[in-house]
């Protein structure tokens, strides 16, 4: 998978390395900005009230 990506990147090794770094950063950004905020409420750390019914109306 990673080998396949590497082979399909344009340019010489340095350009490829730089492009890969940018790609990795972009993936991390998407994860922190969108994926993890979606997944985090599935964990139990948000349940701090004694009336979860009311917690819905935010």
């Amino acid at each position: 998978m990673y080998g396949w990506i590497w082979r399909h990147l344009p340019g010489n090794a340095w350009v490829r390395a730089l492009t890969s770094l940018v790609l990795v950063l972009a993936v991390v950004y998407v994860l922190f900005q969108y994926v993890f905020p979606w997944a985090e409420p599935l964990l139990p750390f948000n349940d701090v009230t004694v009336d979860n019914g009311m917690a819905v109306n935010q």
């Binding site: 409420p41 750390f45 948000n46 701090v48 009230t49 004694v50 009336d51 009311m54 917690a55 819905v56 109306n57 935010q58």
Partner: peptide, 30 residues
């Protein structure tokens, strides 16, 4: 005491008393 709200601070249970008022001032936090 909504989930989004508790990310920005402590949450006051809406139907409970205000601070200092007679009753119960109830606050939730992470």
């Amino acid at each position: 005491t909504g989930t989004e709200l508790l990310k920005r601070g402590l949450g006051h249970y809406e139907r409970t008393a205000r601070p200092g008022a007679p009753g119960n001032f109830a606050v939730a936090g992470h």
